[in-house]
Design a protein around this nucleic acid. Sequence first.
RNA 1: GCCAUUGUAGCUUAGCGGUAAAGCACGUCAUUGGUAAUGACGAGACCAUGGGUUCGAUCCCCAUCAAUGGCUCCA
Length: 585
Amino acid sequence: MEQTQIQQNRHSLAHLLAAAILKIWPDALPTLGPAIDTGFYYDFDFKTPISDKDFEKIENKMREIAKKWKGFEKKEISIDEARKLFAGNPYKLELIEEINKKKESITLYTSGTGDTESTDLCRGGHTDDMARTVLAMGWKLERVAGAYWRGDEKNKMLTRVYGLAFESKEKLEEYIKLREEAEKRDHKKIGKEMGLFTVSDLVGKGLPMYLPKGNIIRTELEKMIRYEKEKLGYSFVTIPHIARKELYIRSGHMGKYDAMMPTMTDENGDEFVMKAMNCPHHFEIYNAEQHTYKDLPLRLAENTTVYRNEKSGELSGLLRVKNLTQDDTHHFIRQDQIQSEIKMIIGLMQKVYSMFGFNDYKVKISIRDPKNKEKYFGSDEVWEKAEGILIDEVKKWGVKYSVEEGEAAFYGPKIDIGVKDSIGRDWQLTTIQLDFNQPENFEMDYIGDDGKKHRVVVLHVAIFGSFERFMGIIIEHYAGNFPVWLAPVQVKVIPVRTSHNEYAKKVYETLRANDIRAEFDDDDENLGKKVHATKNDRTPYWIVLGDKEVEANTVTLESRDSGQLGQMTVNELVAKLTTEIKDRK
RNA sequence: GCCAUUGUAGCUUAGCGGUAAAGCACGUCAUUGGUAAUGACGAGACCAUGGGUUCGAUCCCCAUCAAUGGCUCCA
């Protein structure tokens, strides 16, 4: 395998880590230790638990060993030798048997010092000078974590020791800085500081609740997406949050996601489940009326909450939750409308994302596994055409994309779209999913121009994905400095002295009457303190009102992003803010 | 779910085997102050919950709950 220098160095450090650990804990069983994007890790089966308090000891041991480390001596051994050598380590034995099955040769690498601790089963790819590598690189042990053997939760939990490793100490610092920056932007921290959302033990984990200020942001997002969709001819509907179990038996979800959907039984013995997806309800809305080819595309949209039983350890703030509100749409279209519909959706998405400054896209198109066509639902012809259209439309869009064979769901191909945020992190947002299967399950038809019934094609689309996740992402993207249209408080009204309260109140009321989210800071504090507090709470604008302003019947405007903006009349301020809000700048 | 770490006033944190301290925020009074924080006083915590060890626990042990980071980037 082709490996870069840095990967080789990282991997070598993993060997060094293993050697150090075995010196200190001779009964630990080493398993795997690859290089990763930010350094390396090594998984061990420890007899005694270790923690990050042991890091200093381990790092020192690593440096000590590195000095004596002669290089990586390669030795090819037979399967029997290997079995004998690793007789006490079932993990290595499992690997050896696998290598043997693949008919590859088994290679050992040693430090050249003859130490057994520094001998490891390895495919190769190392630094030739461990001592220099250890000195030159920026590295440190990062944390211990649990990891299942081979990532399978049915297997034994091993102890993983993570290390950071970069080309130089400066690069390591840079990475640590970036991570600190990300921590400062943590949506859970900012959410608390700004009073956006809360999680209560009594309500339950993974079930965030929006506080008044957070709810303003969420409502603005909902209003915006609804407005944009309605302009394109989407029809909004409302569905209940539970349904009879039979609905999900029909859709095929029941049987596959039972753990997600616990049932409740009413007095007649009917079983109901909480919805974990909206499609079946929307399908029944489609079927409530007869449709003709002239009605299509029909786009049913709804901002509605689904409930999913995520693994409790995976819940986190707004990003992984049990209740997620999707900006869900189901497009009911004819086969000949796939192209125009995809094009429209991509256009909508671009328009929406550009409001947030998300312009760096990463697109993944998931298609069938061409070697396993029988696994998929629907005819060859329809699949090929659909996949071709998805790829074509993304090409026309002109963004980076990849085509993933075998990643499609059995019922249809899909497009996943991710964006880069303001500090360069990738977030997967929109999914556009073609579905040839559900129209069969629900017998969803339209009358064609030939007067006969035809099956529709369904597209599942959510632009934001979920409002919870999207909010979490934009909190971090903006670091809480929301643009005016989203800011919970758009302008704060600050009188210089309490004697200016009357004038300030009048200004405040005028702003509110003009649909501007103003807040009146009538605290009996000195001006310096009030302005200081306002600067810290991420309010985009504030106005100061004192003798000068009362006399001239003006306000003095200052902005979070561009400083002092001078005096203007209240009407001028209203006009300025209204325009910015309307333009969603 | 599993592994590691963590859990002290609204927030951020200090502390110790003998029932807790500070800053911010909050309240009252005085100050009427023009852009990095006016002063004084005050209220506020059974130190996550439940057990145990101990003469005695917030501090030690166990369990539970919650938070944070990990859990197929592969010899």
